[in-house]
Amino acid sequence: MRLNDATPQEGSKHRPRRVGRGIAAGQGASCGFGMRGQKSRSGRPTRPGFEGGQIPLYRRLPKLKHFPLVNRSSYTIINVDDLSSLAANTEVTLTSLIKAGIVTANNGPLKVLGDGDVSVPLTVRAAAFTAAARAKIEAAKGTCELLGANSSTSK
């Protein structure tokens, strides 16, 4: 059997409705769409999902709770206060923090938050810094080096 041999079952195909051809044809005058209203007008079907001007369901749902962001980026976060226990001029990376036991899990690239204070100069290499964290590290004569988020090993 070939594709061109395939034919529809007997009786499954109906002739198209010929509307607007007079009352003898059975679909004269209003053509089966009734007298008045939006559904009787020319070009009549509304678009899929239209709810009469009310915000449609596909636009309402993402505003509700429990709709997570698509492709959400997750970071291994650490506060500046946790870095204050390190020795001066230490190079701080995600792997060095895991070896030191300050960070216990690798939840993605490293992000430094600005809670607390640091008094020793450090060279911090991370994927992201908050403005407060960057200011506190640089105020302590340290440096902040921005790594690409994809360059560090993520989970």
Rank of each mutant, 00 (worst) to 15 (best):
A128Q: 04
L94T: 00
K111G: 08
S119A: 13
A24N: 14
R47N: 09
A139S: 14
A126F: 10
R18G: 00
E10D: 08
L61G: 01
P16G: 05
A24V: 07
R21D: 06
I55E: 15
V112E: 02
T7F: 11
L97D: 03
G37D: 08
L3W: 12
A25N: 12
Y75L: 10
P109T: 01
M35V: 12
T104M: 13
V124H: 02
Q54A: 14
P109G: 11
G37N: 07
G28H: 08
G108R: 01
C31P: 00
R134M: 05
R125Y: 04
V92D: 00
A126S: 08
E91Q: 10
K39Y: 07
L64S: 05
Q38R: 12
A24M: 12
T95G: 01
F67E: 06
K65P: 03
T130P: 10
K63P: 00
G32P: 04
P68C: 04
R17C: 00
T130M: 13
T76S: 15
Y58I: 10
Y58W: 12
S73M: 13
R59K: 15
L110I: 01
T46S: 14
R36D: 10
R15N: 07
Y75C: 09
I137N: 03
D117Y: 11
G49R: 09
P62L: 12
F67R: 11
A88V: 05
N4S: 14
L61W: 06
A132K: 00
V120I: 05
S119N: 15
L97F: 05
G28I: 04
G32K: 04
L57F: 14
F33G: 01
K136S: 04
T93K: 05
P62A: 15
G43K: 08
T123R: 14
I77V: 10
S84F: 02
A25V: 03
A127M: 03
A139Q: 15
R72F: 11
Y58C: 04
A87V: 01
P56R: 07
P109V: 03
Q27K: 06
I102Q: 05
R15I: 00
G53P: 09
T90Q: 13
K111F: 14
G20H: 10
F33R: 13
N79I: 00
H14L: 11
Q54S: 12
P45C: 01
I23C: 06
S84D: 15
